[in-house]
């Protein structure tokens, strides 16, 4: 077997997911708790929407059904964040602190790949299901269905959204090499991410600018939702894809610099 190449990394990902599954099976109660939590959070998330749309039909140009689609995408993205991204983040920061991160650097595989696939929390698949459920319900409520083109565009934008979220997370892990303690940073990202449950047009002025270009929350939920609803311009869609690719490259560069600083400075 060769080391390196796409096949090698696909195999590694498989082994890593398998290991995570075995770990999760040891804590079956988690599955039940996770399922209940997922339903609870979803219900809690929809509640303010119900209040908001109780006596009006449109908020910042978004009707109830469209806002619900954003909420569905938010639930999906939260599932990705907490199921596939955060567990590895916490594991890696712990490793950096305890020094066993050295073992990661001794492996003949890309360190960023190893770090990113350290741990998955498969029970968060309930979030994905809840999110899809909300979106389906929203379209039923609106009395229509998205077309194939809209669906494809939405999927592409969801992929871009995951790339952006992952890149943000890699930037945080990279910062851990310098500051070691970065719990606050990850909490901050979690808190900021919460704003992605609202359509981007709800925010005005500075905040809309920040959430579109600096911490691109718009790219994570609103744009995929608009693609699904058929209201996203082609220009915005293409810019989003290009932007997420650029974000990914930046995070990769910062990561490489961080590893170099780690290997040249730590004791």
């Amino acid at each position: 077997m060769t080391v390196g190449g796409l096949g090698y990394y696909v195999r590694l990902l498989g082994v890593s997911i398998r290991t995570s599954l075995i770990t999760s099976m040891q804590y079956r109660v988690d599955f039940v708790i996770q399922g209940v939590m997922s339903l609870l959070w979803t219900a809690l998330a929809i509640f303010p929407l119900l209040v908001l749309y109780g006596d009006r039909t449109s908020v910042a140009g978004w009707d109830f059904g469209s806002a619900l689609v954003v909420m569905g995408l938010f639930t999906i993205m939260r599932g990705v964040l907490e199921g596939a991204i955060n567990p590895s983040l916490l594991a890696v920061v712990e490793r950096i602190r305890s020094g066993s991160f050295d073992y990661t650097l001794l492996k003949p595989a890309d360190a960023q790949f190893l770090v990113s696939t350290t741990r998955f929390d498969p029970w968060h698949v309930t979030d994905l299901l809840a999110g899809i459920g909300i979106i389906v319900y929203a379209f039923v409520e609106m009395g229509r269905a998205p077309g194939a083109g809209e669906l494809a565009a939405a999927l592409a934008l969801v992929a871009a959204a995951v790339a952006v979220m992952y890149s943000l997370w890699i930037l945080i892990v990279a910062s851990a090499f310098w500051v070691v303690r970065m719990d606050n940073l990850s909490f901050l990202l979690g808190a900021v991410f919460d704003a992605a449950r609202w359509p981007i047009h709800v925010f005005r002025g500075t905040w809309r600018f920040v959430f579109t270009f600096i911490i691109p929350l718009a790219l994570m939920t609103s744009f995929p939702a608009m693609a699904l609803l058929g209201t996203l311009s082609l220009r915005t869609a293409l810019l989003s894809l290009a932007g997420s690719a650029a974000f990914f490259m930046v995070s990769r560069t910062v990561w490489t610099l961080a590893i170099r600083s780690y290997t040249s400075a730590s004791s």
Partner: peptide
């Protein structure tokens, strides 16, 4: 077995 995969 994880190391087996990583080291190929």
């Amino acid at each position: 077995s994880l190391n087996r995969a990583v080291f190929g």
